[in-house]
Every structure is written in structure tokens, then in C-alpha cells.
Design a protein around this nucleic acid. Structure first.
Lengths: 184, 184
DNA sequence: CTGCTCATGTAATCGGTTACATGATTGT
DNA sequence: ACAATCATGTAACCGATTACATGAGCAG
């Protein structure tokens, strides 16, 4: 019961088609709320049924027709209500840490590889976030409204990746010393 | 397809009943892999059916009987195989950041409250993690095997909470200046 | 007498993923 | 020729949550 809200929030900006929302989720919102296109389409149907969004079919020549959705007054009300509700602590599902619990029964080298792989992913994401920062938010102190919200999301991403990099580095250090117990 | 692995990893340590696993998930593993007891019980049935764990009924007087599960050789093989597979980047579901996207359409004070609440949660968790650190892992440099894995999990928790606190503090700072645009 | 701990489950539902389907246009 | 982009969906399945069920013993 929350992808619907991610969609409503996106529609605050301007009306979108399902396809556009799906594309947008691959960038901005998608970094802290991933969704498949199928789920977006089905969620849009539900939201339209509940009257939280309205649909308008845009006929196109030599292109499939688009269905553009806008948030309704009811949708805004529902969103406002949701924002005021207590926010659950994000449900964590960290496979990598579960894997580390098998240390001692699985070859350490395998775990070292896994952590190394994660480190590379963190670095890649961080670089991407930094690039977005530079092009979109050069002066964060001047931001207001929705733009500030987007900036804070990105900033959270940056801090999380940095923290992830710090952890991976530390973990690799400890694991390496275990791999060669008495090197020399 | 991963709660099963969290259970298998737990059984590496020693045999557990469903109830014990459920309790244990509330502490250690549960910080990066939460699961309801119902799900644990049904997962245990599946694992036993697949022969990855074996069940033994312990009859108890004046207490409900316990079913204690142990990991089998097949279970160890399956676990080893899973650990070697590429680890997907954790699926993020951060409602708080989605809520921040509504900045400009929802009262800023509401968002300030939400971030403040999250900050308190981060601090609480960090304090708990620090306490666990002190009592269980006073000398991390000497840890080996499974113990090291557990330590690294906790360490990841500490870093994440610290990063969360840093973000909340920054966010509150930026939000506060917006709330009173020209204080003075 | 209220609520907690021990101990295991069923049933319904919801949210999310994977696979499958269609079909024209544009770029390499 | 082949892949990618635009554009929308259905169906099957899996994983997770919520509600409901049972029942004894013990502490406040």
C-alpha cells in the first residue's frame, strides 16, 4: 500500500502516462522505491477506479495511444493523509549480511568476492549520484518545495553509498587478515 | 527465495525450533532480515519437505511440544551454492523519502515531524547496537568465523544508523530554514 | 484477572516478480 | 538484419502481511 503513493507524488509534479512514470522510476524515485512497469500499470488502474487519479486518452498517429493520468482533489487529500501517518522504519532485506553469517562454513574467498562486488556497485552508484548532484542541484541552500525534497532524496542516496563504501572497506580489511592468518 | 537462506544460516550455529528462530530474528539477523513467525513456520515446512533441514519432535510435559530443526548435508550444499551466486543490490523501499517528494504540497511542519521521528528511531537503534557491541564484541580484531560475520552485520547496522542520523540532521536544518523564511 | 511467555499453526489477502503478448518506428 | 524506443497490458506465481485459533503456566 505505498507504490500508489509514490505514483501520486510523481503526479503532483505534472500529469504522466504509465510509460513516463515507469521511465521516471528508473531515475529519481526509483533509487528508493523500485517498481516494475506491470505493477505501475495495474496500480494506475486501481487508483483511477478509486478516483484518486483521472485518465485522459491521448490519440497518437503512428504511435500507440497514451493514457495520461492526473491527480484529483481526492488524490491530493489521500496523499496528505498518508504523509501525516507514522512512517514505518524501512524493511531491510540485506542478503549480503545474511551471506556473511555463513562465515566459517563457506570459503572466505567467496565472501571476499561478494563484498568486493558490492563495493564496486556502491562506487558506481555514488559516482552517478554525484553527477546528478552537479547537474541538477549545484546550490542546495537555495532550493525550495518539491525541488528540495528531490535534493534530500539524492543526498540520502549519497550518504548511504558512502556509508556502504566505508563498511565494505572495513569488512574487506578484516576478511583479508583472516584469509592469510600468518602471512610471512 | 531468501528467508529460507536466513533460516539455514541460523541453523549452522545449532539446531533451533521455529519459536527460537522467530525470537532470534527479533535480535541479530532480524536487523537486516525481518520475518513474521507465521512465515518462519511455513518456510520451515517447505525446507523440511525439500530435505534441506530435518525435524525432531521434542515432547515436553506441561508445555507445548517443540519441533527442533537441524540443517542437513543437502541444506549445507544449497547454502554454499546460494552464497556463491551474485548478490542482488538490496531492494530499497524508503517511504520517508517518498513523503519528502510531497514538499511544497503538504505542510512543511508535517515533514519536519516525520524526519524528527526517524532521527529518534535512528538514535535508539544506534544506542542498542552500541550496547550489543560492548557486551558481545569488545575486541573485533580477534574475531573469527561466524562470530566475525555477526560482528560485521552489527557494524553495518552502526554505520547505517550513523549515516541516517547525519542525513536527518542535515534535512532538518534545511527544512527549518524554509519553515521560517525570514526569521528576524 | 490481566497480560506475558512458551509453542504451533491455518486462511485470506496483498504486494511484487516473471513470463508472455503485441506492434509500429527509429537508429546502428 | 537487429536492437532499442514507444506504449500498454494479461496470467501465473511467489513472498509477505494480517487476522484468527488454541491452550497451559506464571507473574503482577
Amino acid at each position: 500500500m505505498a507504490l500508489s503513493h509514490a505514483i501520486l507524488v510523481t503526479l503532483l509534479d505534472r500529469p504522466h502516462s504509465g510509460y513516463e512514470i515507469s521511465k521516471r522510476f528508473d531515475k529519481t524515485v526509483g533509487f528508493f522505491w523500485r517498481a516494475r512497469k506491470q505493477q505501475i500499470y495495474s496500480e494506475l488502474h486501481k487508483l483511477a477506479e478509486d478516483g484518486l487519479i483521472s485518465a485522459e486518452i491521448i490519440e497518437q498517429i503512428e504511435r500507440p495511444n497514451r493514457i495520461v493520468y492526473s491527480i484529483t482533489a481526492d488524490g491530493r487529500k489521500a496523499l496528505d493523509h498518508w504523509v501525516r501517518e507514522p512512517t514505518p522504519y524501512p524493511s531491510v532485506k540485506e542478503e549480503l549480511l545474511v551471506k556473511l553469517f555463513s562465515l566459517g562454513d563457506v570459503e572466505t574467498a567467496v565472501l571476499v568476492d561478494q563484498v568486493g562486488q558490492r563495493l564496486a556497485e556502491h562506487r558506481e552508484r555514488l559516482a552517478y549520484f554525484h553527477a546528478l548532484m552537479k547537474t541538477h542541484y549545484p546550490k542546495p541552500a537555495t532550493l525550495t518545495g518539491r525541488k528540495l525534497g528531490h535534493y534530500l532524496g539524492l543526498r540520502c542516496g549519497v550518504l548511504n553509498e558512502e556509508s556502504g563504501i566505508a563498511w565494505c572497506t572495513e569488512a574487506l580489511g578484516l576478511l583479508e587478515t583472516r584469509r592469510r592468518p600468518a602471512a610471512r
